[in-house]
């Protein structure tokens, strides 16, 4: 019998058409995760962003709130660039900035993009909160950090209303406050990245602020100390957000690459563009609010 004088060719089993990657063992994965955390074997970027901790722990804690409590629905997610730098500009509301966290879950899970928010320096002075903010990818609202993130092609988020927006009374819900000094527009022009106007509907109703303990807030160094129908009346129970229905819409991007980076120093242009973005967000808010209907469906 004539045996061909060559070695049998080994065909790896993974080449078989019916072969599926074996499902990773969830227990082994969890153990590997714990091992990496205990031995410090993970990477953080220069801002302190820890992608693994954010995805596996921080966002995991927020996901039930996102899916089941607020039933967040995203609209026009295609307006968020897939892999290039962009500036997401959204309205801010809700007394406590839960809208920032929900926006982060939406973009992380549905658009596969980590959101790098620019926050007030108050956040970074506080223990625990400051370093959690850094670990989940956020940094201080200053031109240097914004420019740096945008140059790296990151998706940067800002709430130009700041404390004026998040701490406004319930009676002024869905009315955009002043948009800061337009620093975010200057950063977008310098980096030549699009601005994505974003409307968040639903956060206004989670803690309806009907009063303010202003003098106590000043004593504690806080921008405001809210009175809601349930806080401080019910104590810690009053901190449970009301389960309003949320929608987040991403608008058509406003392109800035037609401008020269030096145009960022032209205050008139920056003001006009800031106003334009503000009007876009206000319009989107009005339409999205109608589209959502009742804040607490199906009754209220």
């Amino acid at each position: 019998m004539n045996v061909p004088d060559r070695e049998a060719r080994v065909i790896p089993i993974t080449d078989a058409p019916s072969y599926d990657e074996p499902a990773p063992d969830p227990l082994a994965e969890a153990l590997a995760f714990v091992r990496r955390r205990i031995t410090g074997d993970y990477e953080v970027d220069e801002f302190g962003y820890d992608p693994e901790l954010t995805d596996k722990v921080m966002l995991e804690l927020l996901r039930p709130l996102y899916h089941h409590w607020f039933r967040v629905e995203t609209v026009e997610l295609k307006n968020v660039p897939h892999d290039s730098g962009a500036l997401v500009v959204a309205n801010h509301s809700g007394t406590l900035p839960l809208d920032a966290l929900m926006l982060q879950v939406a973009l992380h899970d549905e658009a596969d993009r980590p959101l790098r928010l620019l926050g007030a320096d108050l956040v970074y002075q506080l223990p625990v909160l400051g370093h959690l903010a850094r670990k989940t990818g956020h940094t201080l609202a200053c031109p240097e950090d914004a420019d740096r993130l945008l140059r790296k092609g990151e998706l940067v988020g800002v709430f130009p209303e700041g404390f004026k927006g998040v701490g406004k009374p319930f009676s002024e819900r869905y009315k955009l406050q002043r948009f800061g000094r337009g620093g975010f527009v200057a950063s977008a022009i310098r980096a030549g990245v699009p601005i994505v106007p974003t409307a968040i509907v639903g956060a206004e109703e989670i803690y309806p602020k009907i009063g303010d303990l202003a003098s106590l807030a000043r004593l504690l160094g806080l921008p405001y100390l809210p009175i809601t129908p349930f806080f401080p009346l019910l104590g810690p129970l009053g901190l449970v957000p009301l389960p309003s229905k949320w929608m987040i819409e991403f608008g058509e991007p406003v392109h800035t690459d037609a401008y020269d980076p030096s145009d960022a120093d032209d205050p008139m242009l920056v003001f006009e563009l800031t106003d334009h973005v503000r009007e876009l967000v206000q319009q989107m808010l009005n339409e999205l609010r109608l589209r959502r209907g009742h804040a607490f469906p199906p009754f209220l």
Binding site: G48, L140, R148
Partner: peptide
């Protein structure tokens, strides 16, 4: 400082 940018360049 919590009030400074996260990453310092020489000119800052």
């Amino acid at each position: 400082s919590p009030k400074d940018p996260a990453v310092f360049t020489e000119d800052l």
